[in-house]
C-alpha cells in the first residue's frame, strides 16, 4: 500500500517545488466557499496575478472557524501569507495568538459602523436575518417570532459561524433578557444544525418557515435563479452584522506582496466581484454601485455588533444561557 501512495506524494512535492522556483508564490488560507469556480477566489486571484508577477495559491480549510484553528495548529511555521475569511467573533482569538501582523492598508469603507483595526481588514459584510418565503407572515422582532407558530431552523453556535452570530444578535439586542427570549423561541426552533448548509437545505426542502441566514440571501435566489420568492425578515431590534476580514500572517516571507494583495482585495475590481460570488455586501461600494437586485434587499435601521474583545468575553456565558434555555 505504502508503495503506491508514497511515489504519488513524492511526485506532488516535486511538482510543487518546481512551480515555486519560477515565480514568487502567495499562499492564502481561506474558507471553502471562497475558492470554487463560482466563488470570488478565482476572479480575484486572476485579477491580482495580472499585476503582481506572482502566483496565488488558495488553501481552503472548511469554514472561518476551521481556518483559524488550522492557523493556530500550524503556529509560527505556517505556510500562509494571508488569511481571508475570519469574522469579528474570531478576531480576538486570532490577535491573541500573535500570528497576525498589522496590514497598513487604508481604504474608505462603506460599513454601517466605524472600522479602525490595524490588524484586520474588512473585505465584505452582511446582516444576519431569518430568510423565509415571501408569502409567510413576517414577525417584526424576536418577541413576535417567539409568540407566533412559525418554525425556524438555526445553526449550532458551537459549530457554526452564523449560529454564533444569532447568539450574539440576541445578546446584543436583549442583553440580560436574552435567556427569556431563547426560552420563548424554544418551541419555534424546529431543529439546530451543525452548519449553515444543512439548515439552508432543510429550509429549501420546506421543513421550516424560515432559516437563519443573511439579508443578502434573497439576492442569490433573485439574481442567480431569477426567483423572487425569498425574503429576509426585518427585525425592529436591528440586525447583528458579520464583518469578514482578511489579515497578513506575521510569519510571511513576502510581506510586501501580502500587503499588495490586501490592498487589491479592497480595490474596485475585487470588490465588484464579491456581491454576486460571495453574496455579501462589499466593504467598499464599487464605483458602478451594487449589482441590480441588491436594491430589493431589506436595509436594517440599526446595525448591531460587539467589538472583537467583547464578543470573546461574553461568548461562554451566552452559550451557556442558550444551552440551558433550549435543553429544557
Amino acid at each position: 500500500m505504502q508503495k503506491t501512495t508514497l511515489p504519488v506524494a513524492g511526485l506532488l512535492i516535486a511538482s510543487a517545488t518546481l512551480a515555486a522556483a519560477e515565480t514568487p508564490g502567495l499562499t492564502i488560507y481561506t474558507y471553502d466557499s471562497f475558492v470554487p469556480d463560482w466563488g470570488p477566489g478565482p476572479a480575484i486571484a486572476a485579477g491580482f496575478e495580472e499585476s503582481c508577477g506572482c502566483e496565488v495559491e488558495f488553501v481552503a480549510a472548511g469554514d472561518g472557524a476551521s481556518l483559524l484553528s488550522r492557523l493556530l495548529l500550524e503556529g509560527p511555521q505556517s505556510e500562509a501569507d494571508i488569511v481571508v475569511g475570519l469574522d469579528t467573533n474570531l478576531i480576538a482569538r486570532a490577535r491573541e495568538s500573535g500570528l497576525i501582523a498589522p496590514h497598513g492598508v487604508e481604504a474608505d469603507f462603506d460599513l454601517p459602523i466605524a472600522w479602525d483595526d490595524p490588524d484586520f481588514l474588512p473585505y465584505d459584510w452582511g446582516y444576519f436575518a431569518f430568510v423565509a418565503d415571501a408569502g409567510t407572515e413576517a414577525p417584526a422582532d424576536f418577541q413576535a417570532l417567539a409568540e407566533s407558530d412559525l418554525s425556524v431552523v438555526i445553526q449550532d453556535p458551537r459549530s457554526s459561524t452564523p449560529g454564533l452570530g444569532l447568539l450574539m444578535w440576541v445578546k446584543a439586542a436583549h442583553g440580560a433578557d436574552a435567556p427569556a427570549i431563547w426560552e420563548g423561541l424554544a418551541d419555534n426552533i424546529l431543529t439546530v444544525t451543525p452548519g449553515w448548509s444543512e439548515a439552508y437545505g432543510l429550509f429549501l426542502e420546506g421543513e421550516a418557515d424560515a432559516v437563519l441566514s443573511y439579508t443578502t440571501s434573497p439576492a442569490y435566489h433573485l439574481i442567480a435563479e431569477e426567483d423572487a420568492s425569498k425574503v429576509a425578515w426585518a427585525f425592529d431590534e436591528g440586525h447583528y452584522m458579520q464583518v469578514e476580514v482578511a489579515a497578513m500572517v506575521a510569519g510571511t516571507d513576502t510581506p510586501d506582496l501580502a500587503r499588495d494583495f490586501l490592498a487589491y482585495l479592497v480595490s474596485d475590481p475585487a470588490q465588484s466581484v464579491l456581491p454576486t460570488t460571495n453574496w455579501m455586501y462589499p466593504a467598499v461600494t464599487p464605483e458602478a454601485g451594487l449589482p441590480e437586485g441588491f436594491e430589493t434587499l431589506i436595509a436594517p435601521e440599526r446595525a448591531l455588533l460587539f467589538s472583537a474583545e467583547e464578543a470573546l468575553s461574553i461568548r461562554d456565558a451566552a452559550l451557556e444561557e442558550w444551552r440551558t434555555a433550549l435543553s429544557q
Binding site: 472548511g62 476551521s66 484553528s69 458551537r158 459549530s159 431543529t191 439546530v192 444544525t193 433550549l326 435543553s327
Partner: peptide, 22 residues
C-alpha cells in the same frame, strides 16, 4: 444534532468538534 431538535441532542463527537474548532 440535525434531527435531535436542539442542544439536548449533543453528542460527545460534537463536543470534540467544538473543542477543536471553536
Amino acid at each position: 444534532l440535525t434531527l435531535g431538535g436542539g442542544p439536548r441532542a449533543t453528542t460527545v463527537e460534537l463536543a470534540i468538534y467544538q473543542a477543536l474548532r471553536f
